[in-house]
Computed example of a mutant assay.
Amino acid sequence: MRLRDEEPRARLWSLAARQRGYFTAAQALEAGYTYQAQHHHVGRGNWIRIDRGICRFREFVDLPAEKHDHLVRWTLWSQGRAVMSHSTALEVHDLGIANPAEIHLTVPPGFRQRDPAVVVHRADLAPEEMEEREGFRVTTPIRAIAESAAEGTDQDAIDSAVVELLDRGAATKGQLLRAAQRVGPRAELAVERAFHAERA
Rank of each mutant, 00 (worst) to 15 (best):
R58D: 13
R186P: 06
R49G: 01
R44Y: 11
A190K: 09
V138M: 07
Q27G: 03
R193P: 08
R178Y: 11
Q38S: 15
A37T: 10
L165K: 04
I142D: 07
Q175F: 05
A179D: 00
F195C: 01
L125T: 03
E134S: 13
A89D: 04
V119S: 04
T24Y: 07
V92Y: 06
G174C: 10
N46E: 12
L176P: 02
E147P: 02
E131H: 06
D62T: 06
I145H: 02
G135F: 00
I54V: 13
D62I: 05
E59T: 04
S78E: 12
R11T: 07
T153W: 06
E132I: 00
E192I: 09
P141A: 02
L125W: 06
A150C: 12
V119E: 04
P141W: 09
V183D: 06
F23N: 06
R18T: 13
V72N: 01
E66F: 04
A190S: 14
I48V: 15
H121W: 10
V120I: 15
R133E: 00
E7N: 11
A26N: 14
R193K: 14
R58W: 03
S87N: 05
G45C: 05
V163A: 14
H121L: 01
A117I: 07
L165G: 00
R56T: 06
H39M: 09
V42M: 04
D167C: 08
E59A: 12
L125E: 01
I103E: 00
P109Q: 00
T140Y: 09
V72I: 08
R114H: 12
R18D: 14
P64I: 14
Y35G: 04
S78I: 01
A180M: 05
Q19S: 00
E128H: 09
G174W: 13
L125A: 01
A171K: 03
E131I: 10
R2N: 14
T139A: 03
V83R: 12
R114N: 08
V191T: 01
G174R: 14
R122C: 01
R4G: 01
E128P: 05
Q155I: 07
A150Y: 05
W13E: 15
W47R: 04
S85H: 06
L63A: 12
H41L: 15
I50T: 11
I97M: 15
R143T: 10
K173S: 11
R199D: 01
S78L: 09
V61L: 07
D124L: 09
E128S: 04
R52N: 14
T172F: 14
Q19R: 10
I50G: 04
I48K: 07
A123C: 02
L189W: 15
V42G: 05
A117H: 12
L176A: 07
G96F: 08
R168F: 12
L166M: 15
E134L: 15
G110I: 09
Q79E: 15
V120G: 03
R122A: 02
A197Q: 02
V72M: 06
V42W: 01
T106K: 04
R73K: 13
T139I: 02
P8Q: 10
L3M: 12
A26H: 10
P185K: 14
